[in-house]
Amino acid sequence: MAIWIASGNRQNWEVAKKHNIWGVPRRSKGLHSRVKPGDTILMYVRSETHGDIVLPSAIMGDFDVTELFEEIQPLFYAPPQMGDELFPYRFRLKPVKIFEEPVEIKPLIPELGFVTNKTMWSGHFRQAMREIPEEDYWKIVSARR
């Protein structure tokens, strides 16, 4: 089975955690067809600044995919640059582990094989989902405290 990193904002992480559903945008239809039930998804959130507080880029939880489906009912929050995107290609998820302490990704960059450009590493996390090697999965989940 494949292992994926799903990339999003903290608002959509809360939606995924509450509903056990993840969605990808219309432009990611081909990706949706590559994911299979039984695959693993690590949920990644980008860095955000709230006043004086900086929340780092981090892995928030580990999930198994149980079902793929399409739905246009609004559930997710589209960033302003995505307009009225509904993230219609969705995955039903089964939580494996919600990390009490998120796994900050930046300290792991030197060790992650799928991150080939260690200087401009954030580009490797900009697409909706990205398949990663099993070795990288273990490096991430074993970094939890």
Rank of each mutant, 00 (worst) to 15 (best):
V45A: 11
T49F: 00
W13H: 07
K29D: 05
D39E: 13
R26Y: 10
R46K: 14
T66F: 05
I59S: 01
I21G: 02
D62C: 02
N20R: 07
E48K: 09
S47K: 07
S57T: 08
D39C: 10
V65M: 11
R27H: 14
R26W: 03
S57V: 05
A58L: 07
P56Q: 00
K29G: 06
I21Q: 04
G38L: 08
D52N: 05
H19W: 13
I53W: 08
E48R: 02
G38Y: 08
I21D: 09
A16S: 14
E48Q: 09
M60F: 03
D62V: 06
S47F: 03
M43C: 14
S33D: 15
K18N: 14
A16T: 14
I21R: 00
L42F: 00
S28P: 06
P25R: 06
T66H: 11
V35D: 04
V54S: 13
I53R: 06
T66I: 09
V15T: 14
D64A: 14
R46I: 02
P56W: 04
V35E: 02
V45C: 10
H19S: 13
P25N: 11
E67V: 11
W22V: 01
H50F: 13
H19N: 15
R27T: 04
F63S: 06
G61D: 09
P56K: 12
E48F: 01
K29C: 07
G23E: 08
G38W: 08
V65Y: 03
S57L: 07
K36R: 15
Y44D: 04
M43A: 14
V65K: 05
R26Q: 14
H32L: 03
T49Y: 00
I21M: 06
I41S: 06
W13V: 03
N20P: 02
W13E: 13
V45M: 09
K17Q: 13
E67M: 12
H32A: 12
Y44T: 02
M43L: 15
P56L: 06
T66V: 13
G30P: 05
V54L: 13
S28G: 03
W22K: 07
S28L: 04
T66A: 13
M60K: 04
D62Q: 13
E67T: 14
I41P: 01
M43G: 10
P56T: 02
S28N: 08
P37W: 09
K29F: 02
L42S: 01
P25V: 02
L42G: 09
S28W: 00
E48W: 07
G61Q: 03
K36V: 12
H19M: 15
T66R: 07
P37K: 01
V15L: 11
T66S: 14
F63M: 03
P25G: 02
G23Q: 08
W22S: 12
K36D: 14
P25K: 01
